[in-house]
Design a protein around this nucleic acid. Structure first.
Length: 296
DNA sequence: CCTTGAACCTGGGCGC
DNA sequence: TGCGCCCAGGTTCAAG
């Protein structure tokens, strides 16, 4: 479930439980996810207080009080859930704590500042996710973050900035927007949605949105606005929940109900005055959904 | 530089 | 009911 809005939703769900809590134990239930866990990860985290849970692009950043940062990526199928140790309400069964399921690979056993215990469980069937560590003061130089593109929800993201990065690019817009070295955080869904909103063809060369002198075209301004809008709207409603994928608190995101292009092959294009039909093509090995009639 | 294809994994959906 | 195939929110690497 993980493009930027989903990762931000996860962050907001976990932060109240994790920030300020002490890691009593970090339980690694296998030796690796996509990569092996760093040597001594469990020992490194044990007894540390969590200073903050942040996010950069699709990465979650768990800052510990000794300057260690645990970098977490959800891959394609990663998710977190919280298990509290709340006493059952009268008349209810007491939910067994630590009811673990298949593909629960990591468990943060936490003790909150108020004395409450909680467990934060990482589940990832496909195991494309990973957890690595860095020092906070070296994070910007970390291989994963050096050369990473601009945050589409951040202040530095604007048409002038994107014009610089698109200038001279022959790559199709779809590929350019998915390139994390240009913009960091967009994935297949939100790229399709942003291109549909701005009525730009996913096949158009990125460089065609930049004027000769390097200034952004009106189309590029439209694209930037669409990206900003679609990302912020998705975050507002808790991201997309595909396959009933729940957020950390068990609730579902609702943005999938607002998809205008993604996964809507054969459905009529919703742009006013357009009688086109959403089509699916494959670009760089991934599905692109768009309206051939109005996206130019 | 650019593009494609494959790889890493598991599971859901669909056609037969 | 089962099997085989295709597809999936991401990233990375090799090869042309």
């Amino acid at each position: 479930m993980p493009e930027l809005p989903e990762v931000e939703t996860v962050r907001r769900g976990l932060a109240p439980v994790m920030e300020g809590a002490v890691v009593q134990r970090l339980e690694l239930r296998r030796a690796d996810l996509r990569f092996p866990f760093p040597d001594g990860l469990a020992q490194t985290a044990k007894g540390r207080r969590i200073v903050s849970l942040g996010r950069r692009a699709k990465y979650l950043l768990l800052d510990l009080d000794d300057g260690t940062v645990i970098i977490m990526h959800l891959g394609m199928s990663g998710s977190f859930r919280i298990i509290g140790d709340e006493v059952a309400a009268p008349g209810e069964f007491h939910h067994t704590r630590s009811r673990l399921a298949a593909h629960d690979h990591v468990v943060f056993h936490l003790l909150g500042g108020d004395g409450s215990a909680a467990q934060v469980v990482y589940n990832d069937p496909r195991r494309f996710g990973f957890m690595l560590t860095s020092r906070r003061d070296a994070l910007e130089d970390h291989k994963l973050f050096a050369g990473m593109g601009v945050e589409p929800a951040g202040n530095a993201f604007n048409a002038e900035e994107l014009a610089l990065r698109f200038s001279g690019k022959q790559a199709p817009l779809k590929a350019a927007l998915l390139d994390q070295r240009i913009i960091a955080g967009l994935g297949n869904i939100y790229v399709c949605e942003a291109l549909w909103r701005s009525q730009l063809s996913p096949r158009r060369k990125a460089g065609t949105l930049v004027r000769k002198k390097g200034a952004p075209t009106q189309r590029l301004v439209r694209l930037v606005d669409s990206i900003r809008d679609v990302i912020s709207e998705a975050i507002e409603v808790g991201g997309s929940s595909l396959r009933d994928h729940a957020q950390a608190d068990g609730s579902l995101g609702y943005f999938q109900h607002r998809f205008a292009a993604y996964d809507r092959v054969g459905q009529p294009c919703a742009h006013v005055g357009c009688d086109g039909t959403i089509a699916r093509i494959v670009q760089s090995g991934r599905s692109t959904f768009y309206c051939p009639a109005c996206q130019r």
